[in-house]
């Protein structure tokens, strides 16, 4: 299944990913109208700073997702087709137990609606909005095995090349 892989050494912290994520999860889906909407559109991916470094932080859609285990209302579930961990807003009661257990801190609170907000791997798109918009190609949407294989090949070439 596909996941978003982040190559942090290519991140310039331009935050286009954050912006496009919010736009994608808005009604109007464009930069001019979306920012003024209520409930306001929220980004589910984050670029933070620590020690002068730029650190993109994304939901990992964990195999053994703590948020799914902890959810007391059955709102957090794993989508059978995309394998994404999703939040069903019809069941979410805004207890924030998921926020309390997510080790990456990537679950947010939609305050106007009282619902947990998280990355859904953009189910209505071929590939997620953040990946498509990253200007330095720091984000990659790939099958896990494929990504690992490519990384191994790269490493092998580097070793062989000296």
């Amino acid at each position: 299944m596909k996941r978003i892989f982040v190559q942090p050494d290519l991140c310039t912290a331009c935050k286009t990913c954050e912006m496009q994520c919010a736009i994608e999860h808005s009604q109007a889906k464009n930069i001019f109208a979306s920012p003024a909407e209520t409930p306001h559109a929220m980004n589910r991916v984050f670029v933070e700073a620590a020690e002068d470094r730029k650190i993109p932080i994304f939901c990992r859609h964990c195999e053994d997702a703590p948020c799914v285990a902890a959810c007391i209302s059955g709102a957090m579930f794993r989508d059978r087709t995309t394998d994404a961990v999703m939040c069903d807003w019809s069941r979410c009661i805004g207890c924030w137990t998921c926020v309390m257990v997510c080790p990456y801190g990537v679950i947010g609170r939609q305050l106007e609606l009282g619902k947990a907000v998280k990355c859904d791997l953009c189910p209505e798109r071929e590939s997620p909005a953040c990946v498509d918009s990253c200007p330095t190609k720091a984000l990659v949407f790939k099958d896990v095995e494929k990504f690992s294989k490519e990384k191994r090949a790269f490493f092998a070439a580097a070793i062989a090349g000296g």
Binding site: P8, R53, I57
Partner: peptide, 19 residues
Amino acid sequence: HYGHYILSKPGVTDMYVVA
């Protein structure tokens, strides 16, 4: 945030550079 946490783990820091 998570970035602070991950940078406190040795061996991970080199991945992150300043553009």
